[in-house]
Simulated assay, not measured.
Amino acid sequence: MRVLAIDTALSNCAAAVLDDGKDTACFDSIGEEIGRGHAERLMDMIGEVMAETSTAFSDLDRVAVTVGPGSFTGLRVGLSVARGFGLVLGKPVVGITTLAAIARSSAPRDAGGPLLVALTGKGEEVYCQEFTPFGDTIGDAAVRTLSDLAATTSKRIRLAGSAADSVASSLGLPLEQIVSRSAFPGIREVAELGLLADPVICTPSPLYLRPPDATPQTRGRIERQ
């Protein structure tokens, strides 16, 4: 199976083509930590990995795209492009969470404690999800505060993600329990999860864990009769 993977959810902008076939196996990726400007860079990156792997769009079996948690603007860019390809090509598009992709690359794969992937949010908030030591999900993704995590999280937990240091400090954990400080997922892990994902379950819908900060304007509005 050949998949095009796209990630624009956080500060990174990346694309990859991965094929796990015995006779057609290939992988090529490109990524850049740009902060903003995903829309201006993404299509060039896709064109580059498609060319490097000699892949025509008709060769793709599916498209995988990160669905969050992430920035509102970044998510819209990746999801719009992925959905557009899926519609034109008639191929499934699967959504991969940034937390699951980070867990896949960071999971210790041993008999130790579980893994908490935590990304920096606003103030004391973190976007987080717990995984087994092998990267399988345990609970749902959620917004938690550092104080809440400190009161409810096992001291055996291992940590990954951009908020790992903050969580470790709140829980009083040694730095040895931080296995990764990744601020964004690796595009290869997004592609690998894209190959495994069930299109019926892993839909390309944005994962928003908190409502937007903007609120509808009410002053000066004319009420409808």
Rank of each mutant, 00 (worst) to 15 (best):
M1R: 14
S11I: 09
C13L: 03
V17A: 00
G21Q: 10
D23V: 15
D23F: 14
D23I: 13
T24P: 09
A25P: 00
A25S: 14
C26K: 04
D28F: 12
D28A: 14
I30L: 12
G31H: 12
E32R: 13
E32F: 06
E33C: 10
R36T: 15
R36Q: 15
G37Y: 13
G37F: 07
E40R: 12
L42D: 06
D44Q: 14
E48M: 13
S58R: 13
D59V: 08
L60M: 02
D61G: 15
A64K: 02
A64C: 03
A64V: 00
T66N: 02
S71E: 09
F72M: 07
T73Y: 05
G74L: 12
R76A: 03
G78S: 04
L79E: 01
A82M: 00
A82K: 01
L87A: 14
L89F: 04
K91E: 02
V93N: 08
V94A: 08
I96A: 00
T97E: 11
T97I: 04
T97C: 12
L99V: 05
A100N: 06
A100L: 06
I102P: 07
S106V: 09
P108H: 01
R109T: 02
G112N: 06
V117H: 08
A118M: 03
T120Y: 03
G121L: 13
G123R: 15
E125S: 14
E130Y: 11
E130V: 09
F134H: 15
F134V: 13
F134N: 15
G135L: 10
D136T: 08
D140F: 05
A141R: 11
D148G: 10
D148C: 01
A150Q: 10
R156G: 12
I157Y: 03
A160F: 02
G161V: 01
S162P: 10
A163F: 11
A163C: 12
S169L: 14
G172V: 10
L173C: 05
L173R: 01
L175Y: 00
Q177T: 01
R181M: 07
R181G: 11
S182H: 13
P185E: 02
I187T: 04
E192L: 15
G194Y: 05
L195S: 08
P204A: 06
P206F: 13
L209F: 09
L209I: 04
R210P: 02
P211F: 05
D213G: 13
D213I: 04
R219G: 09
G220D: 10
G220Y: 08
R221G: 04
I222T: 14
I222R: 14
I222Y: 12
R224D: 11
R224I: 13
